[in-house]
Computed example of a mutant assay.
Amino acid sequence: MRASSDRVTTVDIPAQSYVVNFYATTDLADAYAVELPRDASNDPEVLARFIFSRSPRWAGWLMHLRDALVAVFGLKTARQLQALDAVAMKQRVGLFRIYRRKPTEILLGEDDSHLDFRLSVLCSQESAPAATRRLTVSTVVHCRNRLGRVYLFLIAPFHRRIVRASLRQAARAGWPTAA
């Protein structure tokens, strides 16, 4: 039987999120939430690192395929992104650059010639009577050109599956606890 804490739901981007109105025009905007147990960490960076270190194996295979295809078009590959700021790994969470931090949210993303995107990992407390804690991962994308729109069209379905699967896998592994 599946625990309620690994149930990933599609939600609106939270109003308090950095990404809610980040771009003047947005070509993709989505958000997924999962309930956090009471003893889970409140630190969005700790939670983001935990989530993105537990991507499903099949997502890694897709990333290798993506890299082989996008290199032909001169887009950044995962290897290139990992090499960026290699000395200062604290400036990245996995492949993603850290843009901003606040106690309840971390803003990640990347800019490239075809598109820019931002990803928010937000910890929030739901209102009473439920008073549950929720982790929401929101993504917004702004395409710069036709290549960006084609790329987004091709990867959007995979993006959605990967985010949901990564959240589910992290919940099943057991969230890091508060320090």
Rank of each mutant, 00 (worst) to 15 (best):
Y32T: 12
A68S: 05
T26K: 03
K76T: 08
L62P: 02
D85A: 06
C123F: 02
T25V: 11
G74S: 08
R49S: 10
P157H: 07
A156G: 01
L47S: 03
T136R: 00
R97L: 13
R49W: 12
A33Y: 01
H114K: 12
R7D: 11
D67A: 02
C123R: 02
L28M: 13
S124Y: 00
R49P: 04
A165R: 07
R168Q: 13
L167S: 01
A59L: 15
L65T: 06
Y18R: 03
L122E: 00
S17I: 02
P129S: 02
I106E: 00
A131G: 13
S166N: 04
S53M: 13
A68T: 15
Y151E: 05
T132C: 06
V93A: 11
V137W: 01
A83F: 08
R66H: 13
R118Q: 12
R100M: 09
L81E: 14
A171E: 14
G148M: 02
T136F: 02
V87H: 12
A48K: 00
A71P: 08
A68P: 05
I51M: 13
D116M: 07
T132W: 03
L167C: 05
S138F: 08
D85Q: 11
L147C: 13
L119F: 09
A128N: 07
V140H: 03
P44Q: 03
V34C: 07
V87D: 14
L75S: 10
L65P: 00
P176V: 04
R54Q: 14
R160V: 11
T132Q: 09
V20Y: 08
D85P: 05
S53Q: 11
S5R: 08
L122Y: 01
L69C: 06
A88M: 11
K90V: 08
A78T: 14
G148E: 01
S5A: 12
W61M: 14
D85Y: 12
R66L: 12
R133I: 06
A88S: 14
S127I: 09
V121R: 00
V150P: 01
A83S: 15
E110C: 06
L95S: 04
T177E: 15
Y151R: 08
L119T: 10
E45F: 00
L62A: 09
